[in-house]
Design a protein around this nucleic acid. Structure first.
Lengths: 143, 143
DNA sequence: AAAACCGTAACAGTTACGATTACATATGGT
DNA sequence: ACCATATGTAATCGTAACTGTTACGGTTTT
């Protein structure tokens, strides 16, 4: 895949919402405000928040005074959920298909893929131990 | 960064060398043969093998009968070494810089970066438990 | 009605990658 | 010596993906 910034943008947005105490429709934060804090474009933010909303992590509302707010407590949102929500993966790449008929090359890709998957799972497991609330804790190095 | 295939290519190449018993200059495998087993282009393979050689994992020799061979036993080469050799990382992206002067947005990027680094380290730690020899074991799912 | 806001489509510009060609250099066989 | 075989690296091309941006339809508040 690619060099997507979706995960960092999502994490930043959620941390911002948490810090602003945006937990109800009344306290919704607009994509323009979120974008201004990155900074990036409001559309980029909305592309991500739409995914977070589909994953049930936040809710959004259109119209004046609308925006996004957290649907769960910051301490209950793990970064692994965030990663899944934005369809990110830690991809170390995809193994070449190998050559059919070659007994050597045929088995290797599956093994390489298994290794990559194992690494991805380890990264996801680590992210599952970090919450949005942790992103606001005093010492980020303690993660 | 990007969707580089360097790591899978490197892992495949090392596994192929191990399977062929290429451990001495006399048993060197050419980039053309390695490329044919992926399949990919020989130049792509050489770009990777050159990095592996710089990392001390393999050795290469130009000229007729030349190619690449393992410098270490397959069981002694961890995939974490391979990942470092090809300068790969699990990049989940890079946090947006944040807005200077904004007390909220200023601290978040460092925290997000710390989380990404933690995930990268977890993936690397997992890869350090898998060796090239493991890629040739009977059951890749056992990784 | 007007203004604010989301979701999404469409487009341009950038970036990174893989594949390929080309070439200088090195090695071994005849 | 000569030549075929290799590596390493530079240069180029086409492609894929992403960000940033504009635009627009629908929704909600004032």
């Amino acid at each position: 895949m690619s060099d997507s910034q979706k995960f960092p943008v999502a994490a930043h947005a959620l941390a911002y919402l948490a810090h602003q105490g945006a937990t109800t429709p009344e306290r919704a934060v607009s994509s323009a405000e979120l974008a201004a804090s990155m900074p990036t474009n409001p559309v980029v933010v909305r592309r991500v928040t739409a995914m977070l909303a589909r994953a049930g992590l936040i809710d959004t509302r259109a119209g004046a005074g609308g925006g996004a707010w957290l649907k769960q407590a910051p301490a209950d949102i793990s970064l692994e959920q965030v990663l899944r929500a934005v369809e990110g993966c830690t991809h170390l790449g995809v193994p070449p298909p190998g050559v059919a008929g070659c007994p050597v090359g045929e088995r290797i890709p599956a093994a390489v893929m298994a290794a990559i998957t194992a690494a991805d799972r380890a990264a996801a497991a680590r992210l599952s131990t970090i919450t949005v609330a942790d992103l606001l804790s005093a010492d980020p190095q303690k993660l």
